[in-house]
Amino acid sequence: MTPAPHLVTVAHGTRTAAGNEVARRLTEAAAARLGWAATASYVELCAPLFAEVVADVATPAVAVPLLLSTGYHLRQDLPAMLAATDRPVRLGRSLGPDVLLAAAQADRLRAAGATPGQPVVLVAAGSTDPAASADLDAAAHLLAHAWGAPVRLATLSGRGPRLAEVVRPGDAVSPYLLATGHFHHRARRDAYAAGAGVVAGVLGPHPRLVDLVVERARALAPAAVRVPV
């Protein structure tokens, strides 16, 4: 039986300590479910950096990006970091779009006081990558299905409309963000300035995100690895 791989998660990283803690909590919870060793890492702004972790890992590893959509980091930065090392690491795709993320968003909306049928604006950090735009359109569709009401899309940067163009008075806003930080603070400010009635919390270490990280790690593991269910 092949030994269990080392789970390496990789989040973007933020200067906000509480935001970086989300990646660590998700990683610890997923590792406990899998029974694997695990390390949370970051693309930038927080240690340990992904490049440093994969250079030091002694066993075969699987890398699960804690990134919600395709973009430059996933298509360029992370593969380049792996190419610079000879370590055996399997890199996964972005977490989203996925029904588990939509379920977590719906929970966050309810917790914030949004009511069934209330129109929602999904707001994402945004990207200039066209592939990211397709991912975000799909994420909005999945949230509409999970929430049971119309969902419109806004972004804070890159391609797509801004909150001021999309939010209507009384809308609920669902930040499509893993953790608190610059984009989260900006999303709340801009949403309320545009007339939103409710702004949900970030996804955070929601149980459905733990499920998703475990699912992605299992899919990356070699077939000969015995993976707990």
Score class of each variant (00 low, 15 high):
Met1Ala: 14
Thr2Trp: 05
Ala4His: 09
Val10Cys: 10
His12Gln: 06
Thr14Ala: 04
Thr16His: 14
Thr16Leu: 14
Thr16Phe: 11
Ala23Met: 11
Arg24Asn: 10
Leu26Gln: 11
Ala29His: 10
Ala32Val: 02
Ala37Met: 04
Ala38Asn: 03
Ala38Arg: 00
Ala40Cys: 09
Ala40Ser: 10
Tyr42Ala: 03
Cys46Ala: 14
Ala47Tyr: 08
Pro48Val: 06
Pro48Ile: 06
Asp56Gly: 15
Asp56Asn: 14
Val57Phe: 05
Thr59Leu: 13
Ala63Glu: 08
Leu66Phe: 08
Leu67Glu: 09
Leu68Gly: 04
Ser69Lys: 00
Thr70Pro: 07
Gly71Asn: 06
Tyr72Leu: 08
Arg75Trp: 02
Asp77Leu: 01
Asp77Val: 13
Pro79Ile: 15
Met81Lys: 15
Ala83Phe: 05
Ala83Thr: 10
Ala83Asn: 13
Thr85Pro: 13
Pro88Met: 14
Arg90Val: 14
Arg90Tyr: 02
Arg93Phe: 06
Leu95Glu: 03
Gly96Gln: 04
Asp98Ser: 14
Val99Thr: 13
Val99Trp: 14
Leu100Ala: 11
Leu100Met: 13
Ala102Gly: 04
Ala103Met: 11
Asp107Asn: 12
Arg108Leu: 10
Leu109Ala: 07
Ala111Asn: 05
Gly113Tyr: 11
Gly117Asn: 11
Gly117Ile: 06
Gly117Arg: 12
Gln118Ala: 09
Gln118Asp: 02
Val120Glu: 00
Val123Phe: 07
Ala125Ser: 14
Asp129Val: 15
Asp135Thr: 12
Leu136Phe: 05
Asp137Pro: 01
Leu143Lys: 05
Leu143Asp: 01
His145Val: 15
Ala146Lys: 00
Gly148Asp: 05
Gly148Gln: 05
Ala149Cys: 12
Ala149Met: 03
Pro150Glu: 03
Val151Asn: 06
Arg152Asp: 02
Leu153Lys: 10
Leu153Ile: 15
Leu156Thr: 00
Ser157Thr: 13
Pro161Ala: 15
Ala164Pro: 03
Glu165Gln: 15
Val166Cys: 02
Val166Phe: 02
Val167Ile: 13
Ser174Thr: 14
Ser174Leu: 01
Pro175Asp: 12
Tyr176Cys: 03
Tyr176Thr: 10
Tyr176Pro: 01
Leu177Cys: 06
Ala179Cys: 08
Thr180His: 05
Thr180Leu: 02
Gly181Asn: 07
Phe183Gln: 10
His184Leu: 07
His185Met: 02
His185Tyr: 09
Ala187Ser: 14
Tyr192Ile: 08
Gly195Tyr: 03
Ala196Trp: 01
Ala196Ile: 03
Gly201Arg: 12
Pro207Cys: 13
Pro207Arg: 15
Pro207Tyr: 09
Pro207Met: 11
Leu209Thr: 04
Leu209Met: 09
Leu212His: 04
Val213Ser: 05
Val213Leu: 09
Glu215Phe: 04
Glu215Thr: 13
Arg216Phe: 09
Ala217Arg: 02
Ala219His: 12
Pro228Gln: 12
